[in-house]
Lab assay of single mutants.
Amino acid sequence: MTYKLILNGKTLKGETTTEAVDAATAEKIFKQYANDNGVDGEWTYDDATKTFTVTE
C-alpha cells in the first residue's frame, strides 16, 4: 500500500510517499525520514487517506 507523509516543519515543508505492508511499517519509515531531516513534532494519522502528518 502507498502511504503519504505531510511535513509541516519549521524549516522543512512538503510531502513524500512510501510503499509499506502496513501503517506501522510506514510510520517507522516516515519517523526516520523526519528525524533525518530535523523535523520533530506532533504526529497524526488518517486511516481513511493513509496519510501521516507531522507538525512542529
Rank of each mutant, 00 (worst) to 15 (best):
D36Y: 09
T2K: 11
G38D: 08
G41W: 06
G38P: 01
T44I: 09
K4E: 03
K10M: 13
T16R: 13
T49G: 05
Y3P: 00
E42F: 13
W43E: 00
G9D: 03
T44K: 09
G9S: 10
T2D: 05
T55W: 10
Y33D: 02
A34L: 08
T44Q: 10
D22T: 05
I29Q: 06
L5N: 00
T55S: 07
W43P: 01
G38K: 08
T11E: 08
K13F: 10
Y33L: 05
Y45M: 02
A48G: 10
A20M: 03
Y45P: 00
T53P: 00
E27A: 11
A34P: 01
A48Q: 10
G14M: 15
D47V: 11
F52T: 00
A34T: 06
D46N: 10
T2S: 08
T44L: 07
E42W: 12
Y33A: 03
K31R: 14
V21P: 11
D40E: 13
G41K: 02
K4L: 09
E56K: 04
K28Q: 12
V21D: 12
K10W: 12
K13V: 09
A26W: 01
G41P: 01
K28D: 07
A20L: 02
I29F: 12
V54A: 03
G38V: 04
K4R: 13
A48R: 07
D22Y: 04
K13I: 11
T16D: 04
A24K: 12
T49V: 06
D40Y: 15
A26N: 00
F52L: 01
M1S: 11
A48S: 12
D47Q: 11
E27N: 06
E19A: 09
Y45W: 05
K13R: 15
L12R: 09
T55P: 01
K50G: 05
E27G: 07
D47M: 10
Y3E: 00
N37T: 08
K31S: 04
E27F: 15
D46L: 04
Y45H: 02
T11H: 11
A23V: 12
A34S: 05
Q32P: 02
E15I: 12
T11Q: 10
L12G: 07
D40Q: 15
E56I: 09
N8I: 13
N8E: 11
D46Y: 05
E19D: 10
K28V: 10
D47P: 15
T53S: 07
G38Q: 08
E27Q: 13
V54G: 01
K4M: 07
A23K: 15
E27W: 13
T51E: 04
K50V: 04
T11K: 12
T25R: 06
Y3D: 00
D40L: 12
K10L: 13
G9Q: 04
N35R: 15
I29G: 03
K28T: 10
W43V: 02
T11V: 09
K28R: 13
L12Q: 09
T49R: 07
A20R: 03
T11F: 14
K50P: 00
I6D: 03
Y33M: 05
Y45G: 00
L5F: 06
F30H: 01
D46M: 04
V39I: 15
D36F: 09
E42A: 11
T18E: 04
E42H: 15
D46I: 05
D40V: 15
G9R: 05
D40H: 15
D46H: 07
G38R: 06
L5P: 00
Y33Q: 03
G9Y: 07
G38E: 06
A48F: 12
T51S: 05
K28E: 08
T51V: 07
A20G: 05
N37S: 08
T11W: 15
Q32A: 11
I29A: 07
G41R: 01
D36K: 11
Y33E: 02
G9P: 03
K28I: 10
T49E: 06
L12K: 10
T17M: 10
T2W: 13
I6P: 00
F30L: 05
V21S: 13
A24G: 08
D36H: 09
D46K: 04
A24D: 10
T2P: 06
N35Y: 15
G38W: 05
A26Y: 00
F30R: 00
K4Q: 05
T17Q: 11
T55A: 06
T44H: 11
A26L: 01
K10V: 12
K31E: 04
T17L: 12
K31G: 03
L7G: 02
E27T: 05
K31M: 09
A20K: 02
L7H: 04
F30I: 01
A20E: 03
T53A: 05
K4A: 05
T51Y: 03
D36S: 10
N37W: 15
D36R: 11
A20I: 02
K31P: 00
T16P: 03
N35A: 14
N35Q: 15
G41E: 01
T25N: 08
F30T: 00
E19L: 14
M1K: 13
K4Y: 13
T53D: 03
V54I: 10
F30W: 02
E27D: 05
T44G: 07
A20D: 03
A34M: 06
A24T: 09
T49L: 08
T51L: 04
G9I: 09
E56M: 08
F30G: 00
T18P: 01
T44R: 08
E15V: 13
V39D: 02
K50Q: 11
I6Q: 05
A48N: 12
D22K: 03
G9E: 03
D40P: 04
D46T: 05
T2R: 11
I29H: 09
W43M: 04
I6V: 11
G38H: 10
V54N: 02
E56S: 09
G14V: 15
T25F: 06
N8K: 10
E15G: 06
T55Y: 07
T53M: 10
K10G: 10
L5S: 01
Y3H: 03
T16W: 15
T55E: 06
Y3Q: 01
W43T: 01
Y3M: 02
E19Y: 15
G38Y: 07
L7V: 15
T49S: 10
Y3V: 01
D22H: 04
Y45V: 02
V54L: 09
F52K: 00
M1G: 12
D22P: 01
K4H: 12
D40T: 13
T2I: 14
A24V: 10
D40S: 14
W43G: 00
E19H: 14
D47L: 08
L12S: 07
V21Y: 08
A48E: 13
E56V: 08
I29W: 13
Y45S: 01
M1E: 13
G41Q: 02
F30Q: 00
L5Q: 00
G14A: 14
D47G: 09
W43S: 01
K31T: 05
G38F: 07
N37Y: 13
Y33F: 13
L5I: 03
A24E: 13
T49F: 05
N35S: 15
G41D: 02
G41N: 02
M1I: 15
Y3G: 00
N8L: 11
K13W: 09
N35G: 10
K50R: 15
I6H: 05
A34K: 01
A34D: 00
A48K: 15
T44V: 11
I29V: 12
G38S: 08
D46A: 05
T16V: 15
Y45L: 02
E42G: 05
T16F: 14
K31Y: 06
D47N: 09
D47W: 08
T49N: 08
E15M: 13
G41Y: 03
T25V: 09
F52R: 00
I29N: 06
A34F: 03
K10A: 12
T18A: 11
